[in-house]
Design a protein around this nucleic acid. Structure first.
Lengths: 212, 212
DNA sequence: CTGAAAGCTGACCATACGGTCAGGATGCAA
DNA sequence: TTGCATCCTGACCGTATGGTCAGCTTTCAG
């Protein structure tokens, strides 16, 4: 009868608690915004006393910063899809798939990210001016090359990227609206698939994407 | 030397103050979210003592509700573009133009609306289940007709609408990100025009829109 | 086994915020 | 001019919240 939750090692304790806190924080920040979120609520959701939160994260800002940085990592990882691709059909399809998967699996994270940007990116400004800018410039180059190689119509790469971000992110950020218009039910597997297919089809057709 | 601001009639006073408060509130709610906004900040921005705000709007919630409802009106008005149109090219072009103009002229309003929906539409749930649903169903019908008449490819009307909402709203909600990637400068007239043209072109091409 | 480091927490504090109110100022109809 | 309704506001209040801390328990290296 060795209680499986009992013998916790220091490392495990730290990892698990931080994880629980970050998860709870992500949800609360997503639902209430930074200003509306309370440490008490996050603590309750994480199943820990409030003072324990401050043991791991000194301030609300620090906790928020951690949450936002986590999201940003995930967000950037979806980028890799773009790189391996030979042409717009592969690359953009994969990117849309990846970002839609994020919208579906991490809606809270997406909302926190959206909220952060909407409020002027007080925490992530540095990242936006360095990492994000570099990433974007890189993809702009790739798209430009595709255009030069006749693999797609000459569409402004930046506006195309914005379009990809917007359409995919919308399913997370405005998920509540979509649910309401869907009879109050969240999208089914089939509907998610249809959403992805529609987006891909419209955009790939719209930019005149040619097989590599 | 009749000071032009002096002789205020009751009606004018009320109208002007409410207007100033709503404008200030829109900005503060957009920048800080509902939870992060404070009545004091709104009062300062409106140039009135805090207690005066409570004279016109009993509670923070009531003020917020007014702001959100205003936005919703504007949002719905852009809908009319759709109705008069003979086909997808006219209708969708006009709608994109209208919504982009809203994103440009009322970015704060757009953000408040986005925030409201992201947080589960606590204030606007009723509207979403009635007005918005009706509006959406109506447009879905129109798009379906266009498809039946061979004026465009058989694209899922709902996902098309989401795409229109997402792409246009993105320029307001994520305006800060776009500015940052634009070298820290807000988009020029020319860039706004390009944005609109790109969106229109990609989407209209993407759905195979045929001249009416 | 032992001591120190890490983990934990109830009780507490200062502040900021939404909201109230008594009473003064102002526009206006009669 | 007068009386009243509207408009205005400084001072105040209760509460909720972020954050602190003293002292407890638990882990674990030596």
């Amino acid at each position: 009868m060795t209680e499986s939750t009992r013998p916790m090692r220091r490392q495990d304790i730290r990892r698990e608690n931080e994880k629980a806190i970050l998860l709870a924080a992500e949800k609360v920040f997503a639902e209430a915004g930074f200003g509306g979120a309370t440490m008490q609520l996050i603590a309750d959701l994480a199943g820990l006393p409030k003072a324990n939160l401050h043991y791991y994260f000194a301030t609300k800002e620090e906790l928020y910063r951690s949450v936002v940085q986590n999201i940003f990592e995930i967000w950037l990882q979806a980028a890799n899809c773009f790189d391996a691709a030979r042409g717009p059909i592969d690359g953009i399809s994969a990117y849309i798939d990846a970002k839609m998967e994020i919208s579906r699996r991490h809606p809270d994270g997406s909302k926190v990210w959206a909220s952060e940007v909407m409020h002027g990116a007080p925490v992530l400004q540095d990242y936006m001016e360095s990492t994000l800018r570099e990433w974007t410039d890189g993809r702009v180059e790739i798209i430009r090359r595709w255009i030069d190689e006749g693999k797609m119509d000459p569409v402004d790469p930046r506006h195309l990227l914005y379009m990809l971000w917007a359409t995919t992110q919308h399913y997370a950020d405005f998920g509540h609206q979509i649910e309401t218009l869907n009879g109050g039910k969240s999208l089914s597997d089939r509907q998610w698939r249809e959403a992805k297919e529609n987006i891909k089809r419209v955009i790939l057709t719209g930019i005149g994407a040619q097989p590599a």
